[in-house]
């Protein structure tokens, strides 16, 4: 555990909590992509199956359980409790175009051809593109609420911090995992356009609006 990894994990947790609080306080999930939230839940479910097979640390298990419960909670709020506020007309990304290729790739490129390892690989690849329905939705409506942009900034920062963590681990432990690194870089690159808008607009007190 190093500081980049820890701050990355906390940033990830902060993102999830920001989104949950936004939905809970406003009693609305307008502007949030339910499809991205379903994909993130699928990411956690397929990655954290090792909760039952492999104990690493109390921190590791507790965080896994928190991520699982909070992401499933978000999906519950969106598709059940506050379903009437869900903006499905603008959430039209076809997730099968992500899940099917990612599923195929995880069978072809993995560390070990075993069920748990393939599911772990699937979750890493899927996470890298799971935000696309949300970004697609923002590009369709042309704007995002400020609280939603804080959510996206915290979520994007998390994987960027993980990349720094992997560089650090390579130099201090000689450790690297190419699957995680490549997917993590793809994931972070997808946020670059958003990061630019966030820094130039949201941090200066303006709402995030795309040029018409």
């Amino acid at each position: 555990m190093n500081v980049f990894r820890l701050v990355g994990d906390l940033s990830h947790l902060l993102a999830i909590i920001i989104l949950l609080l936004k939905i809970w306080k406003t009693r609305s999930c307008a502007g949030v992509s339910g499809k991205s939230q379903i994909l993130f839940s699928l990411v956690f479910i397929t990655r954290y199956l090792d909760l039952f097979t492999n104990f690493i640390s109390v921190y590791n298990s507790v965080m896994k359980i928190i991520y699982l419960v909070t992401s499933l909670g978000t999906v519950y709020l969106m598709y059940f409790k506050f379903k009437a506020t869900y903006d499905s007309n603008h959430d039209t990304f076809r997730i099968e175009f992500l899940v099917v290729p990612v599923g195929g790739l995880s069978f072809l490129v993995n560390h070990d051809f075993t069920p748990l390892e393939i599911l772990w690989t699937f979750s890493i690849y899927l996470e890298s593109v799971a935000i696309l329905p949300q970004l697609f939705m923002i590009s369709k409506t042309g704007e995002a609420e400020t609280i939603t942009s804080h959510y996206l900034f915290a979520l994007g920062s998390y994987r960027a911090l993980y990349i720094v963590n992997w560089v650090y681990r390579y130099y201090t432990e000689g450790f690297f995992d190419l699957i995680a690194i490549v997917a993590g870089c793809v994931q972070t690159i997808l946020y670059c356009d958003f990061f630019y808008l966030y820094i130039t607009k949201v941090l200066k007190g303006k709402q995030l609006k795309l040029p018409a």
Binding site: R5, D9, H12, D50, N54, I56, S57, N60, M63, K64, Y67, H111, D112, E117, W120, Y162, N165, R169, E173, F175, D177, A180
Partner: peptide, 10 residues
């Protein structure tokens, strides 16, 4: 080891 290492991450 190589694979055990990544699994300590989230």
């Amino acid at each position: 080891s190589f694979k055990a290492a990544i699994k300590d991450e989230l």
